[in-house]
Design a protein around this nucleic acid. Structure first.
Lengths: 211, 211
DNA sequence: TTATGTGAACCGGTTCACAGCT
DNA sequence: AGCTGTGAACCGGTTCACATAA
């Protein structure tokens, strides 16, 4: 199989969400033209993306909405259950603990870890909070594969090393830090600075907001 | 000035953060080799990115850390104050209201809007919560340019239209929805599904996490 | 000698044009 | 006839090679 670009993977997520919206509306079939419009990409882009994984459509007709959704779920690995540990029980951690999307992604949060002794032993959104020193044990007991980092910036880098040592396979990072993981280890960083600075740059560039 | 790619803007944010870390450490000068290493990009990439905006370095020596940081701040529009309204006082909205980075970005949250009458009139992180019907008035009174969307998916699209109508210039969107804004209007979407599905895809691809 | 700045070459992702099914 | 699937062309972003300056 040829190498799939990150852009293609990102768009698959977008297609999947649009397909699920269409399913909610009871739509059975969709053309690449329509689906690409919903995803705000070109129709050829959508077909090319799918072509890397097979041919899921019917020429002259389009794609079966539920079937294509199921195929993309499988491609993205959402057809199996994942277990994740959430690091950090601050305001962001608490927000993530209540995130409804985990169910859709088949991700189960098996534990939350925090340094604050006052939080250890409590539950957040029904999930137990453990002390950071329990990392190895929790990993062993639950077989969690994914670490979600929602700790303050300075804590993130040292913690990421412990996470690697504990045997986690991938990290979703919300801390404003550049992580150096072993080559090939799956990492996705959600960076609020990039988000806000993107918008302030564009606003400045277009001379909007000058009042 | 030639068109700057989104990738370049994104990397400028990354360079800026590394420069600020270096300033905290008291480092005065940095080479493109060292800074690019911290940013995990190629040194030529860094120099090319900067070259679009001018020449800020000294040949044979490197870059002045505080001066380059100041230049990038100016480029990204962080040298002026921005005002933003936060939409949605759920768990994500509350987490964002307490986000420390706004100060660094010179972004001031001038108000929070929510539909829940129980929340209206209260304050979150010292910021007043208003009813959604106050959108036009709040925009007028504060001159806010940026809207931050932290509402549930189904509410996001109709709300985005009201935001456009009210005269906001840019949106940072946290709702899991594809927004259709007027062409050219600055938008950045933070999409948790893409983040988690990126990692599950990579884990599945590399056959890690098979236990 | 060291490190920046940049035109040119390169490469990979996007788009086109059209063949291939139904 | 209609819409998918895909090799080829295209284009823009990345990397290279090296001129330039301290």
């Amino acid at each position: 199989m040829t190498k799939i670009s990150n852009s293609t993977v990102r768009r698959l997520s977008i297609y999947l969400r649009q397909l699920e919206d269409l399913m909610d509306e009871g739509v059975e079939t969709v053309s690449s033209a329509r689906l690409s419009e919903l995803a705000t990409v070109k129709a050829t882009q959508l077909r090319k993306d799918l072509s890397f994984f097979g041919s899921f459509g019917v020429r002259g007709l389009g794609y079966s909405v539920p079937k294509l959704a199921a195929r993309i779920k499988t491609i993205l690995g959402l057809d199996r259950e994942w277990r994740a540990v959430l690091f950090g029980a601050g305001s962001l951690g608490r927000a993530l603990a209540g995130y409804k999307g985990f169910e859709r992604h088949n991700i189960r949060i098996v534990g939350i870890m925090d340094n604050d002794p006052h939080k250890v032993g409590t539950t957040i959104s029904g999930i137990m909070v453990h002390g950071m020193d329990q990392i190895g044990q929790l990993k062993e007991e639950t077989g969690a594969q994914i670490a979600i980092l929602a700790v303050p910036g300075p804590a993130a880098r040292p913690l990421s090393e412990k996470i690697v040592a504990a045997g986690f396979f991938g990290i979703v990072n919300f801390a404003p830090v550049r992580l150096n993981l072993p080559k090939g280890m799956p990492l996705y960083s959600v960076d609020l600075s990039i988000a806000f600075e993107h918008v302030t740059y564009k606003l400045k560039e277009t001379d909007l907001g000058d009042h």
